[in-house]
Design a protein around this nucleic acid. Structure first.
Length: 293
DNA sequence: CCACTAACCTGTAGGC
DNA sequence: TGCCTACAGGTTAGTG
């Protein structure tokens, strides 16, 4: 799925359609995705107004007029689709002319100007999931998450504390959502390349002992922020089945410098190295052994 | 607690 | 074209 920049792009795509809208109809077409839908899910959505469309890490958070928060995680292949107007047939709202395969949830929304919009969620692999709860502070998915990488709490000092004593590779440590929330496999590879840090380094080895002109963790934090900001500005990445919430596909093309570029020349000017692919905790990492140390 | 693996599920790309 | 295998952006349960 979608990592933080893609989820943020989806949020921005959905917000103008959903914020302030009334959920007129809600249909769930199976009992579970990765986890079962919450009890009486559809009926708890129906009749509610959507007051806010937010994001925390890779979670979309819709605040309802009932006071409940509706959470959506896209897993690997989750996608939201928007169809102006909206047409109900046999309990399903069809996009015209082609409904996406694996649509598990359909909503019909009515906005202040009485216009209607059909929103649907599709997810081929069903690694995504949803939840609905009264108290975000008590929700198991949200508690224990690390800071937002683009927020003020994320800093070299935070990483130093999180990495201290960690023998796992920095690649794995950055994928741990308790350390920092929102990074995924692609952007970790990209950020480490920018920071010229090898994904194989033990996390603890990056914790500075002072004396260096610019600590590696400062460089890493800046690289993570820059990569995410640029990706969000590019509108998220278009890759495989990822689409923007408005259904646009191939509208933009974000280029990754090392991800999925095994064997290509290192993009760093003058480096002369070659991008390598290795596997760490079951996931592919791409890096340049020459300039990433 | 830490680190790693397998598992969840479907689609697709690449080799033969 | 068809068949088979490997792999895919995420997270979690289980193992040692």
């Amino acid at each position: 799925m979608p990592e933080l920049p893609e989820v943020e792009t989806v949020r921005r795509g959905l917000e103008p359609h959903m914020r302030g809208a009334l959920i007129v109809e809600a249909k769930v077409h199976r009992r579970d995705l990765r986890f079962p839908f919450p009890p009486r899910f559809a009926s708890r959505l129906k009749g509610q107004r959507i007051e806010a469309v937010g994001r925390r890490a890779k979670y979309l958070l819709f605040v309802l007029s009932s006071g409940e928060t509706w959470l959506s995680h896209l897993g690997m292949t989750g996608a939201w689709h928007v169809e102006q107007g909206g047409d109900l047939r046999d309990g399903r709202y069809y996009r015209q002319p082609d409904a996406p395969a694996h649509t598990h949830l359909n909503l019909l929304l009515e906005r202040a100007d009485s216009s209607r919009v059909a929103i649907s969620y599709s997810d081929a692999r069903r690694f995504g999931f949803m939840d609905l709860f009264a108290d975000p502070a008590g929700n198991a998915f949200l508690t224990g998450l690390g800071p937002e990488p683009l927020g003020n709490e994320f800093s070299a000092a935070h990483l130093a504390a999180a990495f201290a004593g960690k023998q796992a590779p920095v690649k794995s440590a950055l994928l741990d959502q308790r350390v920092v929330a929102g990074l995924g496999n692609i952007y970790v590879s990209e950020a480490l390349h920018r920071a010229q840090i090898s994904p194989r380094r033990r996390a603890a080895s990056l914790v500075g002992r002072g004396g260096r002109a610019k600590a590696e963790l400062e460089v890493l934090v800046a690289a993570i922020r820059a990569v995410l900001i640029e990706a969000i500005e590019a509108g998220g990445s278009t890759l495989r089945d990822f689409r923007t919430a408005s259904g646009e596909l191939g509208y933009f093309q974000h280029r990754f410098l090392v991800y999925d570029r095994e064997g290509e020349d290192c993009p760093r000017p003058g480096c002369g190295g070659r991008v390598r692919r290795i596997v760490q905790s079951g996931r592919a990492s791409f890096y340049c052994p020459r300039c990433q140390r």
